[in-house]
Nucleic acid binder design. Structure first.
Length: 474
RNA sequence: GGCGCUGUACCCAAGUGGUAAGGGAGAGGUCUGCAAAACCUUUAUUCAGCGGUUCGAAUCCGCUCGGCGCCUCCA
């Protein structure tokens, strides 16, 4: 059984073979090389952006779950029109400006429980490698210089357009192909290197001073970090054209070898039925939502729970639904931890867990079908709840089940969330004890009073036959 | 105009040829001093619509209607 993923290049579901060479065992494969297009650090990322980054996270986590090791890079674009403009507007250096938003970006990633990746190259730290590629392209005569800017010559790269299927495209009447201020021979040619304008930062090169075009950094970083064909390249669907098409053109023209084996593209997050985007103004940042009182955990759940190739319509109601779903999982774990029974009289626990793994893997192997996998998981939750109600599980069974849930959570990343120690634990515990005594004394008025008081603080009490447990409402 | 994604219950969402997963919400029941949690039962003769292929289709084909995106910076 192998993982199947949808490759934008072939528009088909393909069996995933890292390195292009089938091996006997998963552990025989070299680390899976992944490159993900990261953010341009000119302002806060919005949660549409995070949908893609959470998908990247799901992908690498699942590969690891399946036994692959991963070598994953995500870039930080820290020089482009927007960052330059932003720095200028604030009267600080480009570096000061981009450092600020880079830091915020990584904080947000952490809040969403997105694993750090192995490499986070910055565009401004990869100039040398960009020039290397440009030299190669130059040697092959596939570029030209126009007013100090260097352009890739589409007409000399016949494969251009294979990824986006736009090679034979007709130009829509009125399309703004003349938007670029520079002189290009063909409207579809794109800048490898841009001549400096007034007040803009620039780097000295054998081709003269200037700054990178947008697409060159990804090609350069991939070469710098991986040095050869990579397995997976990810990004939002809006990057298929022109960004990824241009990356392919640059890298394959320069090095004459296949650039990427599998192209994975994440569909957009919609809000009110339209694409969430900065320019449209219809976006939420993570901070917006946190300020509204939502937690990162249900946000992660919501963004991860729909299949990545389907548009997902974001609503605040969706976050609430996610909170409820998570509560169901949390309640199960609380119940499992509460089991004290020592003797074993149930023999199906291992089978139940084995089936969980099998069905989960089957769903996820199919192009990372997380919704199917969640269905499998919640069926398991129901079964275990029933077993607990029937008092069939021992403490040992419960521990095995918790371990299995944690194993799946190495992929989900929304169950075990960092939670701070409860500073009020002692006080709450004392009140709980007082209430137990009140109940014994049939003083239900006082008992309810305590319960209501704690509820005000968001603390839920649950009476079980073994005593009272409490939890914070998430 | 070209290239894509998409339309499944009140909401979210799997299923891509074998007779509709799962979550939320709703209703009834069990348990409980009352709750909460959990469990049980229940909620789509039907998958935008209409044709076709097939023993059999939500799944394949055709047409129609609707939503979204890319073709310009964009995850």
């Amino acid at each position: 059984m192998a993982i199947k993923i949808y490759n934008t290049m072939s528009r088909k579901l393909e069996e995933f073979i890292p390195g292009g060479e089938p091996k006997e065992q998963i552990t025989d494969y070299p680390p899976v090389t992944i490159y993900s297009c990261g953010p341009t650090v000119y302002s806060f990322a919005h949660i549409g952006n995070f949908r893609t980054f959470i998908f990247n996270d799901l992908l690498r986590r699942y590969l690891k779950f399946r036994g692959y090791s991963v070598d994953h890079a995500m870039n930080i674009t820290d020089v482009d029109d927007k960052t330059i403009k932003g720095a200028l507007a604030e009267g600080i250096t480009l570096k000061e400006y981009t450092d600020k938003y880079t830091k915020i970006f990584f904080e947000d990633l952490k809040k969403l429980n997105i694993e750090p990746v192995e490499h986070n190259p910055r565009a401004t730290e990869s100039i040398e490698e960009m020039i290397d590629i440009i030299k190669k392209i130059d040697e092959k005569g596939i570029m030209y210089n126009s007013e100090g800017s260097l352009y890739f010559d589409i007409s000399k790269f016949p494969q251009y357009g294979r990824l986006s299927n736009l090679d034979k495209r007709e130009i829509k009447a009125g399309a703004r192909y003349d938007a670029d201020e520079y002189n290009k021979e063909d409207v579809r040619d794109f800048a490898l290197w841009k001549a400096p304008k007034e007040n803009e930062p620039f780097w000295e090169t054998p081709y003269g001073p200037g700054r990178p075009g947008w697409h060159i950094e990804c090609s350069a970083m991939i070469r710098k970090i991986f040095g050869k064909t990579i397995d997976i390249h990810t990004g939002g669907v809006d990057l298929i054209f022109p960004h990824h098409e241009n990356e392919i053109a640059q890298s394959e023209a320069a090095y004459g070898e296949k650039f990427v084996r599998y192209w994975l593209h994440v569909e957009h997050l919609l809000v009110d039925g339209a694409k969430m985007s900065k320019s449209a103004g219809n976006f939420y940042t993570l901070r917006d939502l946190l300020n509204m009182g939502y937690s990162p955990r249900p946000i992660r759940y919501l963004l991860i729970s729909a299949h990545y190739r389907k548009q997902l319509n974001f609503t605040l109601e969706g976050i609430k639904h996610s909170e409820q779903a998570l509560e169901r999982i949390d309640n199960l774990i609380v119940r499992l931890r509460d089991i004290k029974k020592e003797e074993h009289n149930f023999n199906e626990c291992d089978n139940l867990i084995a089936k969980l793994y099998f069905d989960f893997t089957e769903a996820m192997d199919n192009d990372l079908n997380i919704s199917g996998a969640l269905g499998v998981f919640f069926e398991f939750v129901s079964k275990v709840n029933t077993l607990i109600s029937e008092e069939k599980l021992s403490k040992n069974d419960a521990e095995k089940i918790i371990a299995a849930i944690n194993k799946l959570d190495s992929v989900f990343g929304f169950i075990n969330f960092e939670s701070e120690e409860d500073v009020d634990a002692e006080r709450i515990e004392a009140l709980v004890q007082e209430r137990i005594q009140a109940k014994k004394d049939k003083n239900f008025k006082r008992a309810d009073e305590i319960r209501d008081m704690l509820k005000e603080e968001g603390i839920i009490l649950e009476d079980t036959k073994d005593g009272t447990r409490w939890k914070r409402k998430k």
